[in-house]
Computed example of a mutant assay.
Amino acid sequence: MMGALKKYRKFMLFLAIGFIYTLAYPMTAHAMHIMEGMLPPKWCIFWFVVSAPFFIYGLYRMHKIVNSDIPNAKVMLALCGAFVFVLSSLKLPSVTGSCSHPTGVGLGTVMFGPGVMSVLGVIVLLFQALLLAHGGLTTLGANEFSMTIVGPIVGYAVWKLCRAMKVRRSISLFLCAMFADWSTYVTTAFQLAIVFPDPNGGVGAALVKFLGIYAVTQIPLAIAEGLLTVIVYNLVISNDLWKESALQ
């Protein structure tokens, strides 16, 4: 038992520091997570309905993984969920009163596939909405769709494509995390643009404006997130806590 705890102490220390930081230094919640009250009721319902099938599939996938004989599966699920929570809680000021932050979904996407992330993401988004005033309950469906559905699907596609092309594992993982992050923000910008179209240019012009706001901070943040994801994943693999072929 003590040996197992020593294996995980690096991860627990990293996650504990991040968790303490998010609680000790709260920030005004004008972030990638769409705030409570920003979306009309019809759009809140729409995104809940669109996200529901992915969430149900994620529950099915998680049930299979939890009840499998894969070593450390439950611990790694918890690690991936905590990784998303910590990274997506580290909000940095952007422009025009907005904020940006990493998403952290790349790690779990590579280890468990995109389906599981929709469930882990809902848990994270609920905790952030209730404890950190980050996001909202009525906008939960929209935030889930952008960060834990579109992001992981795009990241997983990039990961599989890179591996099929014999790209090095670290580079494939870096690109997976980076594109998962960027696609999340593109989706969020679109979600806001269709609700708040530009008076002159319509949805297209509004989309360009929102993307411009996010791009200032999110491009470097996504690169940093990709590097951090590679470091954590390599630590997991090098300490024999997970096998790349576990779910294959």
Results as ranks from 00 to 15, higher is better:
95 V>H: 04
128 Q>V: 08
181 D>H: 15
181 D>G: 11
211 L>M: 11
197 P>R: 09
135 G>V: 01
95 V>G: 02
111 M>G: 03
192 L>I: 11
197 P>T: 05
101 H>F: 00
166 K>S: 13
166 K>C: 10
142 A>L: 14
138 T>N: 13
180 A>W: 00
126 L>Q: 08
121 G>I: 04
208 V>W: 03
123 I>L: 10
193 A>I: 11
100 S>C: 12
122 V>H: 00
184 T>K: 04
109 T>M: 11
146 S>H: 14
148 T>H: 15
185 Y>W: 09
151 G>D: 02
122 V>E: 06
102 P>E: 02
179 F>W: 08
198 D>E: 05
113 G>C: 05
211 L>Y: 01
141 G>W: 02
188 T>I: 11
122 V>W: 04
128 Q>L: 04
207 L>C: 06
182 W>F: 14
199 P>Q: 10
159 W>L: 13
170 S>P: 12
191 Q>W: 04
169 R>C: 10
113 G>Y: 04
155 G>K: 05
138 T>G: 15
166 K>H: 13
178 M>Q: 12
202 G>Q: 13
120 L>K: 05
138 T>E: 15
122 V>Y: 07
117 M>P: 01
107 L>G: 04
155 G>H: 01
138 T>P: 15
101 H>A: 13
157 A>F: 09
180 A>D: 04
206 A>G: 07
185 Y>L: 00
107 L>D: 01
134 H>P: 14
149 I>T: 07
208 V>G: 05
194 I>T: 01
133 A>P: 05
206 A>E: 02
173 L>H: 10
130 L>H: 10
111 M>V: 08
179 F>T: 02
184 T>P: 08
103 T>A: 06
160 K>C: 01
141 G>P: 00
107 L>S: 06
114 P>S: 06
117 M>G: 07
184 T>R: 01
135 G>Q: 00
182 W>N: 03
134 H>V: 03
200 N>A: 15
202 G>C: 08
148 T>L: 07
189 A>D: 04
97 G>M: 03
173 L>Q: 14
122 V>R: 03
141 G>C: 07
158 V>Y: 02
105 V>E: 01
99 C>T: 15
166 K>N: 14
127 F>C: 11
209 K>V: 14
147 M>V: 05
138 T>V: 12
115 G>T: 02
127 F>E: 14
182 W>R: 09
116 V>I: 15
128 Q>I: 00
182 W>T: 05
150 V>P: 11
145 F>W: 07
104 G>Q: 03
170 S>E: 14
190 F>M: 09
118 S>L: 05
165 M>K: 14
183 S>H: 10
113 G>W: 08
177 A>N: 06
193 A>Q: 09
119 V>A: 03
167 V>M: 10
142 A>G: 14
